[in-house]
Structure formats: structure tokens, C-alpha cells
């Protein structure tokens, strides 16, 4: 008990020191960009390089929907030059924060609005998981590059160069997805979790079946579970996917019923402790997802590439 207490206060002290450290580094005139979730952070960081500093509001893995600000977060927000967020479906609390700050954040990029502007096909208002669609990510990078150039004209070339590189990487990965997920034994894509992979499934022509809707907190009914079990049996599905950051209670229960195999997929938002430790990039996570999908669905890929 005593040891725990000491540990607890040590942690508290560490937090104080860490936050004061953050404050000190702000002396250099860097662009300050606030993002909400890890995939956005990763993409933006790749563009800004040394010229900007990215602060992620929601710690990687924390619950997004019921997020609450800490005092240090408010301090960060006050200094922000740019906010990059997904949209009201993911961060419904953002307008409230602006009210609480007492002023508007200078510049904002809402992922959803950017896509809507260009008439991006297949947008679903209630589904915020846009970052899992690589084509959408490409558009976001473009928007961020433009905005950064506006905020920091001196860095225009720097940003556009880095943006180009990143976009090339994204479209390469997208091509890999397209090619390797062709010729699959089955394209039934069952996720024993919330509906996070809708955009991804649509892009690569997978038939997505999710246990629950867009809200990760809701619980499935017995009927839905039963339907999925019957689908697995009827179509002889071999793989069921779960979100890698949570314990797959439902996937396990369904597997026990059907002998189906479990495969983890990352949403990029909630990382596993070892992934956080290894500072794995978002595109790397997507690459892992590709490998998992390929193996699980038994895809042989396009002949011409092999």
C-alpha cells in the first residue's frame, strides 16, 4: 500500500515536470498544431517535420467519445495555430471546447468537411472512421499542406515537398491494398466490434459485417450474434476480426461456437502498449492490417504482380 502511494506521488510529480518541460520548449517560433487522434497526428507530423509541433489532444488509446479536457490541454489549445480533427461524429465536444476557451481557434481543418467539399463518394455522416480510407487520407494531406503554407509562408516549399513524399507513400500503400486484396477465397469481412472499417471495406470491395454500430460502447444483441454465427456456418467463413486494442470477448465467444480464427486489426486510434512503445507509424499499422487481411481472407493477389 505504502509502495503504491510513493509510486502514485512519483507519477504525479513526473506529470508536473513533464508539462513544465513542454512549456519551456515553446520558446522557438514553431507552428503549433492540435490534433485529436493518432492517425491525424502521424500524418500531420510527417508534413510539419521540424517546423511545427503537434499536440494530440486525446492520448493514444483513451476513449474518444467521452473525452474530458485537463487544465494542461486548455493551455495547449490556447496556443494552437491550427486544429486538425475528424468531425462532429467523432469529436462532438469540440464546439463546447471553443466556447470554453472564450475564443475561436485560428484555423481548423475538419476531415469530414474537406471530403464533403470535394464530393468524396460514400461519405456517411455517422461514420467518422475516414482515416482508414487511404484515398481520404491523401486528400487530408493535401488540405493540411495548403493550410500550413498559408500559416507559415516561408515553409511553403518545405511542406509541399514533405506532403508529396507522404502522398506517394499513401498511394503506394493504397495500390498494395488494391492488388493484394484481389482474388480472395472469401470477401466476407466479419468484425466482432464496432463499425470502424466501413470505408476500408468499401474501398477494397470487402463485404463488411460488424457486430455493433458506429459506437464502440454499445453492446450487441443475441440476435445479431446468432446471425453472424449462422452466416459463418453457411458461407464457411474462416476468419473473424477484432480491434487489436481491446480484449476480444465477443470474437472469442463466436470462435468457440464456430471454430473460426481470430485476427486483430488496428483502427489506428487505440494502440497496444508495445505499439506505443515502438512508436509505430499509422501507415505501418495500415500495412499490418493489410497483411492480416490478406492472410485471413486467403487472398492470392493479382497474378501480374507476383
Amino acid at each position: 500500500m505504502k509502495k503504491n502511494k510513493v509510486l502514485f506521488f512519483a507519477l504525479l510529480l513526473f506529470l508536473f515536470l513533464a508539462s513544465s518541460q513542454l512549456a519551456r520548449t515553446e520558446q522557438q517560433p514553431k507552428l503549433k498544431i492540435i490534433t485529436t487522434i493518432y492517425p491525424l497526428t502521424e500524418l500531420v507530423q510527417n508534413i510539419t517535420g521540424d517546423r511545427g509541433e503537434v499536440f494530440q489532444l486525446i492520448p493514444t488509446g483513451a476513449e474518444v467519445h467521452n473525452f474530458q479536457l485537463r487544465p494542461s490541454d486548455v493551455a495547449q489549445l490556447r496556443q494552437a495555430d491550427l486544429l486538425v480533427a475528424v468531425g462532429p461524429a467523432l469529436e462532438p465536444w469540440l464546439p463546447k471546447i471553443e466556447t470554453a476557451l472564450g475564443r475561436k481557434i485560428k484555423q481548423k481543418i475538419y476531415f469530414f468537411d474537406e471530403l464533403k467539399k470535394v464530393g468524396f463518394p460514400g461519405l456517411v455522416e455517422q461514420d467518422p472512421h475516414l482515416w482508414l480510407d487511404l484515398k481520404a487520407d491523401d486528400l487530408l494531406v493535401k488540405a493540411v499542406v495548403n493550410q500550413l503554407a498559408e500559416l507559415d509562408p516561408k515553409g511553403r516549399l518545405y511542406y509541399s515537398e514533405r506532403g508529396q513524399k507522404l502522398r506517394a507513400k499513401i498511394s503506394n500503400l493504397d495500390r498494395e491494398f488494391q492488388e493484394q486484396l484481389a482474388n480472395c477465397r472469401s470477401n466476407i469481412f466479419i468484425v466482432a466490434g464496432h463499425q470502424a472499417f466501413g470505408y476500408l471495406a468499401r474501398r477494397y470491395h470487402l463485404q463488411l459485417v460488424s457486430l455493433v454500430g458506429a459506437n464502440p460502447e454499445s453492446r450487441p444483441g443475441l440476435k445479431k450474434i446468432q446471425e453472424i454465427i449462422e452466416l459463418i456456418k453457411k458461407e464457411q467463413v474462416k476468419a473473424i476480426f477484432y480491434e487489436s486494442s481491446v480484449t476480444p470477448y465477443y470474437a472469442r465467444a463466436i470462435a468457440q461456437e464456430t471454430g473460426i480464427e481470430l485476427y486483430p486489426l488496428s483502427t489506428g486510434v487505440h494502440l497496444r502498449p508495445e505499439e506505443i512503445k515502438n512508436k509505430i507509424g499509422f501507415l505501418q499499422l495500415m500495412k499490418q492490417n493489410l497483411e492480416t487481411l490478406k492472410k485471413a481472407l486467403g487472398c492470392s493477389g493479382r497474378k501480374d504482380r507476383q
Binding site: 507519477l11 506529470l15 492520448p59 493514444t60 488509446g61 483513451a62 476513449e63 474518444v64 467521452n66 485537463r70 464502440p216 460502447e217 453492446r219 450487441p220 444483441g221 443475441l222 450474434i225 486494442s245 481491446v246 480484449t247 470477448y249 465477443y250 472469442r252 465467444a253 468457440q256 487505440h270 502498449p273 506505443i276
Partner: peptide, 24 residues
């Protein structure tokens, strides 16, 4: 929870339980 800030979703599963996904 706030110290770790990284298991919100996992903890949420205990708000309503998982009677339909329990092991033997």
C-alpha cells in the same frame, strides 16, 4: 484512468457487462 489515459474503451465494457460473450 486519467493517469494511464489509454484503456477507456476496455473499461467501458464493464459499464454494461458482456453476458453474451463469456467464456466457459
Amino acid at each position: 484512468v486519467s493517469l494511464k489515459r489509454g484503456f477507456g474503451v476496455e473499461l467501458m465494457s464493464f459499464l454494461f457487462g458482456d453476458i453474451l460473450a463469456i467464456s466457459s
